[in-house]
Nucleic acid binder design. Sequence first.
RNA 1: GGCGCGUUCGUCUAGUGGCUUAGGACGCCGCCCUCUCAAGGCGGAGAUCACGGGUUCGAAUCCCGUACGCGCUACCA
Length: 489
Amino acid sequence: MINPQVRVRFAPSPTGYLHVGGLRTALYNFLFARKNNGKFVLRIEDTDRNRFVEGAVENLIAALKWAGLQYDEGPDISGPYGPYMQSQRLEIYHKYAQELISQGKAYYCFCTPERLEALREEQQRMKLPQAKYDKHCLHLSPKEIEENLNRNISKVIRLNVEPNKKIEFDDVIREHVEFDSNNVDDQVLIKSDGYPTYHLANVVDDHLMQITHVIRGEEWLSSTPKHVLLYDAFGWERPVFAHLPLLLNPDRSKLSKRQGDVAVEDYRDKGYLKEALINFVALLGWNAGDDKEFYYIDELIEKFSLERVNKAGAVFDLQKLNWLNAEHLRKKTDDEILEMLKKEIENSEYKSANLSDEKLLLIIQAMKERVTFVRDFIYSCKYFFEAPTDYEQKAIEKNWKEDTSLHLLRLKDEFEKLTNPSKEDYEQVLTQVAEELNVGKGKLIHPLRLAVSGQSTGPGMFDLLYILGKDEVIKRIKTAIEKIKALIK
RNA sequence: GGCGCGUUCGUCUAGUGGCUUAGGACGCCGCCCUCUCAAGGCGGAGAUCACGGGUUCGAAUCCCGUACGCGCUACCA
């Protein structure tokens, strides 16, 4: 055992945003760490200088924090194994690369990109099963190497892969996996710019940081033999590997930008709750073995295990995410929703609508069962924020009859007599008017709804009237009669 | 092409040799509730468990092969 305490890491490269697949990887690491009273480390794999993106690390950290995946050690949270940015650990990688060279397990390579390119083409022409480096520089004499080094020729350090060896390792999810070393290239360990490649850096860091379990995406499975070779070359104990299935597009290709949103930030901006996103993504490739689908993160921590992670990739299905979002939203208290709604209103066209908290709370209660997103409290019931400007054509045709105007006028007159009416008062009046007019209540309710909201659907009629308030209701009935009359003509 | 991994309703999945006429969830359809829409309740359609061989009294479950999909095959991670 590397360490009696579980230590896991999420090791993204800073591409500019957090991919939802990365979110799931981070989540599983987080859940595993919390479940086992271990530590969750964030390590930034920024060893590719060509792909440097300004502000990427900050975005990544912000997205992780938004999702609630707090790490114990990371670039901005110091720990005993820092620094946690690989670009700040260059000397360390060089030291270990030298150690490998001195043991003959790695070697300098001075080949030019042109020679490499030519080699590749040659191998392709010969229809070799696989393009591989030909170990040309492995056979340089010590003197030649010395000279090249002194002349400052561009160089890399390569792993010296012994041919004809079976490389095997165990994976919690895939069980036993085997590779033939003849299929493993002499991977570059240190690039000509002095930066390490992923393969060297991740092995060195995982060892130095005492990582016990490497939980990462399946795209890494094929390079794991290189990592295993490195652990063995250094004489280090291997961590437990767990390669997660990929997240897929609806057409089952790897989840990509081209087919929809992939950034956690996109979902956050669209109004998804972090609880829903976490819940959803947790279930993409894992389940507790029961029928439960609705989870808060604490329950996920309690139930999570790597053994129950699936092998096959999972399609990211927005419909189910939407359902979970609605479920989580409904479970929130009215006050919690109020705070979110007020922020949403601040960013909407109704910024200056000035509805009181009391009124907003009433809207929340009336609409809670009818929304998927917080912003639906505005956009699926705009009539609470402004008088309707037009009226659903279909509803007019269906519910606006010859005598409707008269009925509504009558209703309006009765409403006018009320002082400070309650929901019940409205209902009582309407029932009474319906009786006197000798019509069903529906005959009044449907056109009334249309008149005050412009729509044919919405919360209970009397809730609607009560929230709008007597004056507004009367005003809207009057305008509706006028406008709809004109529309029918 | 090579190597690796995978394959149960449209989608996420349960299932680890007999409990399975393959269960649940989302979505879809219908009914109930009802002033509408939701929510909720009830019900329905939907999977010859990729295909073909074995092993076994018995296989979605074990083995082999094939097909298909995906990943890797960089001085990217």
